[in-house]
């Protein structure tokens, strides 16, 4: 989907939400979420292209697959958590949004744990006992 289409979809959805908000706020919220999901899904194809390029580059350079995997997972977690948090915040539930963000942060930190242990073990092994 090109940028004009995305912007158009966004504008139309915004008007519709503004109209709906007077009558049924719940449906307005649903419409906003749906629009967000549609835009997100329409971008998935492009993201896949980018990821393919990145993976091929990394394989050519013989980057450890662990690194690439971790990076991609981090990107995914960050995006999804951000999306959910924004949607819930739009609905006026700031506390739930912050919880979703917390979950995203914790999951990212959990990804980092094996890396941290590896580095610390290496340093301990290097140091003379």
């Amino acid at each position: 989907m090109e940028i004009v289409q995305v912007v158009g979809l966004g504008l139309v959805a915004t008007f519709l939400v503004l109209v709906l908000k007077e009558q049924k706020p719940v449906f307005a919220f649903l419409l906003a979420t749906f629009t967000g999901v549609i835009i997100f899904l329409s971008l998935i194809g492009k993201i896949a292209d980018v990821l393919h390029v990145l993976t091929r580059l990394a394989e050519q350079a013989r980057v450890n697959t662990l690194f690439l995997e971790t990076i991609l997972k981090i990107i995914g977690i960050a995006y999804i958590a951000e999306f959910g948090a924004q949607v819930t915040r739009d609905a006026g539930q700031g506390s739930i949004a912050s919880k979703i963000e917390l979950a995203g942060k914790i999951l990212i930190m959990v990804m980092a744990i094996p890396i941290i242990t590896m580095i610390i073990e290496t340093i301990v092994q290097i140091l003379p006992t």
Binding site: A78, E82, I108, M109, A112
Partner: peptide, 23 residues
């Protein structure tokens, strides 16, 4: 990356990854 909420965490993990690659 989206807005600033995840920024620090992601940067930390990326730094660790780069350290790992160097080591």
């Amino acid at each position: 990356l989206p807005n600033n909420a995840m920024d620090r965490y992601v940067k930390l993990v990326m730094g660790l990854l780069i350290i790992l690659a160097i080591l």
